[in-house]
Design a protein around this nucleic acid. Structure first.
Length: 862
RNA sequence: GCGGGCGUGGUGGAAUGGUAGACACAGGAGACUUAAAAUCUCCAGGCGCAAGCCGUGCGGGUUCGAGUCCCGCCGCCCGUACCA
């Protein structure tokens, strides 16, 4: 073989790894374990470059840690329940189950050629009855511990299709299929009590030191702990049983700027008024003609309705405030009612200006008594402001001090109390859909809601369902719902709601530790393998999936399924960026874009043109890969043409892992060429070594070249290892490029070169494992490189004798100094002062300041 | 709307507050070749003949020194609780 042939080499080594069972996770009490996990995929039908990137990064860590002596767990599974399967069934008439399992088979076949070090014996899909049965069992445990309950909540209701819609199925307030305006409708739904853990989930974030700061910040903001005042405004005239309106405010210090009281359209008082008055019912119904998503509600026009009711200001009996119903007030947060202070809240101000409500400053900026116009005065809470006529007797204080003073005042007078509030709501897990884990309870006319008996689990999804009409097939199944009450034995009905798919993904990491156990987890396995040492996935999961998983680990711990030490399941988290690709487009006669596949365009004379017609195309760089834009690169094509190692090498090389990476054909080719070059270099050294061996020590000895290459090898070991440890794989790759250049140019002996290349193959093995095995074997490495111990850099080989110090004059580089690495400050100073450029700048005078940072820089200020 | 992040040559990017542009792509020049491909060598931020000046989205600030820290903008991306 004179050329590296990936089509032959890659399957060969994959077979060798399988034969030796190199990637089987072994529970070995003698060795330290390492659990690396990538967020498991949804089986959409094809793997894409984003998957390749995610799993390659995990594989680098897994292989590196394995070489470093750890017993590694690196599993793979499928997040297999969810809407797309039902949508496919509706569109093509198939069954979600066949669609899903077919997709899994296809994607598994696409992943295997990547040569990932995955323990496939642990694979499962969340739609396997063995998995969701255990999930049902845990649901019953949660129920017993009071971690699940039922309450009413609103959903998006499509009045034409008579079905519940997901937020993404609501487009501009209308159902995606029917086009009918959606309505908010209330249903009784199951909830996890995640909000009981708000404080713990918040404070425990501090311990997650190996999580990105941005994710911890996002979660903290999402949990949204606040301190404020809760108190009631008294209605001047009671309505039915309502004598007042309870409000929560984080800015009680602005109470003297109150303008009106606002309540949610879903507030009990609004409901009461709705029943009495047609105009209010009409307004509330209009407010409900909207999807439930927060973004939609916040972006919608702020609208209000004056109820005509009034309340008394708590500090002034004679001050009456109007009560408005407003569409932007959420029933889920606080008490579902607020008082508005337009002067110090932009949203309140816009509302006040729109409806002609009063605007009165509660405070002013120091030294500026201009009343608020159309821009609310919202200073930082840490900034001092001047309060006017404040009841608590405060004047020039910061916002936060003012809040506390006001709370103390209200508590002292007994009309309000300081409370802590959280934005985090309980987790609604009910879904009115078929393709999910059935909620294992029974509704009995006599006994109410009764848990199914554990020995009857799993409650299996029926196979005989149809998707020809919208709605939940479980609800209209002729027999599935019918059952006997587990408590009294009388005829009863099964719950037809299934679980949110976030439930499935909230504990899969724990199941991987004992995927075939007859209980949700096996305590001994969970104790050994948990926690996940390195979790890798997309930033889009920063809040929901990760927060739900953190809650679930706590709930599982309470029920005895996880040890105390696993209440925080992910020790380290890394969020990787997307894979993007340029979009190529031309315009049709109407000016509409026509998208072209990457393989249909070429570069010509610095322009990007269509191969067929030569017409110039517009290029939109770095766009998210999307089928509709024809800019998707299929990993299988890359693997076929260049091999898995090339795909892996390129996807790691071009961008820092946390940022987006743009897939380019030229970049992939360059990666391929480089791998070929490494192979040729190894092949060449192998031949030379053999010739040298046959002819005796004829190889000309060059001790200084040998020493230089040995030093470079240790430098490479240190730098590449640091890159892997620090999740900077792109810099590891850059160091390996540089090291390849060094080896190629080196005039060291064949023996030393062979040694350098064996080290290189080890350093490359986490990234390009197939090529690494080939090179390792060619140059006499023993056994598999996959099982060889990671090389260690000798610190003595890393020290440099001399360093180059830049000399700056007034912060700009003007000269350089070569000095011994250990030279002291005084020595450097005198050398710097003697420098020609410095002499010139000083023009005989003395420097104002001389800064010497040994080993770093000299700065002369003149 | 709100919360979080990102922005460096023609391109992807490198850089513990200390020489901005490592490494690579595209480009240019050369070697080898009948020729091409492949491979190898060299050049290369912008302006300028040069000395030098200007340069990390924009505008300010802190510092001996800012891509890096702070404040204010602009643009793009992620999330926004029933997409996964």
């Amino acid at each position: 073989m004179s050329r590296y042939d990936h089509t032959q080499v890659e399957p060969k080594w994959q077979a060798a790894w399988a034969e030796a069972e190199v990637f089987a996770a072994r529970h070995d009490p003698e060795r330290q374990k390492y659990y690396v996990l990538e967020m498991f995929p949804y089986p959409s039908g094809r793997i894409h470059m984003g998957h390749v990137r995610n799993y390659t990064m995990g594989d680098v860590i897994a292989r590196y840690k394995s070489s470093a002596g750890f017993s590694v767990l690196h599993p793979m599974g499928w997040d297999a329940f969810g809407m797309p399967a039902e949508n496919a069934a509706m569109a093509t008439g198939g069954h979600p189950k066949t669609w899903t399992y077919n997709n899994i088979a296809v994607m598994r076949d696409q992943m295997k050629p990547l040569g990932l070090s995955i323990d496939w014996s642990r694979e499962f899909a969340t739609c396997d009855p063995e998995y969701y049965g255990q999930q049902q069992s845990m649901f019953l445990d949660f129920l017993e511990k009071g971690l699940v309950y039922r309450k009413n909540a609103v959903v998006n209701w499509d009045p034409v299709d008579m079905t519940v819609l997901a937020n993404e199925q609501v487009i501009d307030g209308c159902g995606w299929r029917s086009g009918a305006p959606v309505e908010r409708r209330e249903l009784t739904q199951w909830f996890f009590r995640i909000s009981d853990y708000s404080d713990e989930l918040l404070s425990a974030l501090d311990g997650l030191e190996k999580w990105p700061e941005k994710v911890r910040t996002m979660q903290a903001n999402w949990i949204g702990k606040s301190r404020g005042l809760q108190f009631a405004f008294t209605l001047t005239a009671p309505v039915a049983d309502f004598t007042g309106i309870e409000v929560y405010t984080t800015r009680p210090d602005t109470l003297m700027g109150a303008s009106f009281v606002g309540i949610s359209p879903d507030h009990p008082l609004a409901r009461q008024l709705e029943a009495e008055r047609e105009d209010i019912a009409e307004f509330c119904n209009e407010c409900r003609q909207m999807g439930t998503s927060e973004a939609d509600m916040e972006k919608a026009e702020k609208r209000g309705f004056d109820t005509g009711l009034t309340v008394r200001h708590p500090l002034d009996e004679s001050w009456e405030l109007p009560v408005w119903i407003a569409n932007f007030i959420l029933m889920d947060y606080g008490t579902g009612a607020i008082f508005a202070c337009p002067a110090h809240d932009q949203r309140d101000l816009d509302f006040a200006r729109k409806y002609g409500l009063p605007v009165k400053n509660a405070f002013f900026s120091l030294g500026d008594d201009t009343p608020v116009g159309n821009e609310a005065l919202v200073p930082m809470k840490s900034e001092k402001v001047r309060f006017t006529d404040h009841f608590a007797g405060i004047e020039d204080v910061t916002g936060e001090d003012a809040v506390e003073a006001t709370i103390r005042f209200a508590e002292g007078q007994g009309w309000g109390k300081g409370v802590e509030n959280f934005r985090l709501r309980d987790w609604g897990l009910s879904r009115q859909r078929y393709w999910g884990c059935p909620i294992p309870v029974v509704h009995c006319a006599d006994c109410g809601v009764v848990p199914e008996r554990k020995e009857k689990l799993p409650v299996l999804l029926p196979d005989d369902v149809s998707f020809d009409v919208p709605g939940n097939p479980l609800d209209r199944h002729p027999t599935w719902r019918d059952c006997a009450c587990p408590s009294c034995g009388k005829p009863a009905r099964r719950e037809t709601d299934t679980m949110d798919t976030f439930v499935d993904s909230s504990w899969y990491y724990a199941r991987f530790t004992a995927p075939r156990a007859a209980t949700p987890t096996d305590p001994a396995e969970a104790a050994y393998w948990m926690n996940v040492d390195q979790y890798i996935g997309g930033i889009e999961h920063a809040i929901l999936h990760l927060l739900y998983s953190r809650f679930f680990a706590r709930a599982m711990n309470i029920c005895g399924h996880l040890p105390d030490s696993a209440r925080e399941p992910f020790d380290a988290l890394f969020t990787q960026g997307m894979v993007t690709h340029a979009i190529y487009l031309t315009r049709n006669a109407e000016g509409r874009p026509v998208y072209h596949y990457p393989e249909d365009v070429e570069q010509k004379d610095g322009k990007t043109v269509l191969k067929e017609s030569g017409a110039e195309v517009e290029v939109i760089p770095s766009a998210k890969m999307s089928k509709s834009k024809n800019n998707v690169v299929d990993p299988l094509n890359i693997i076929r043409d260049f091999g898995a190692d090339t795909a892996r090498w390129f996807i790691l090389s071009d961008s820092p892992p946390e940022r987006d990476v743009e897939w380019t054909a030229s970049g992939a080719e360059a990666a391929f060429k480089h791998l070929q070059r490494v192979w040729r270099l190894a092949d060449d050294v192998r031949q030379r070594a053999e010739e040298a061996g046959a002819a005796g020590p004829s190889d000309e000895a060059r001790p200084e070249d040998d020493k230089a290459l040995e030093k470079a090898t240790h430098r490479a070991i240190a730098d590449v290892t640091a890159g892997i440890e620090g999740f900077a794989f792109n810099t590891s790759v850059a160091k390996l490029y540089a090291f390849t250049n060094t080896v190629a140019k080196s005039r060291a002996s064949a023996a030393v070169k062979a040694q350098a290349l064996r080290a290189m193959s080890q350093l490359m093995s986490p990234m390009t494992p197939h090529l690494a095995e080939e090179v390792w074997t060619m140059l006499g490495g023993e056994g598999l490189v996959a099982t060889a111990a990671w090389p260690a850099a000798d610190p003595a080989m890393l020290v440099e004798d001399t360093v180059t110090l830049p000399i700056q004059i007034n912060g700009k580089k003007r000269s350089e100094l070569q000095v011994p690495a250990d030279m002291d400050k005084a020595g450097i100073e005198s050398l710097a002062m003697a420098d020609a450029a410095v002499q010139k700048a000083l023009a005989g005078g003395q420097p104002k300041k001389l800064i010497v940072v040994p080993g770093r820089i000299v700065n002369v200020v003149v």
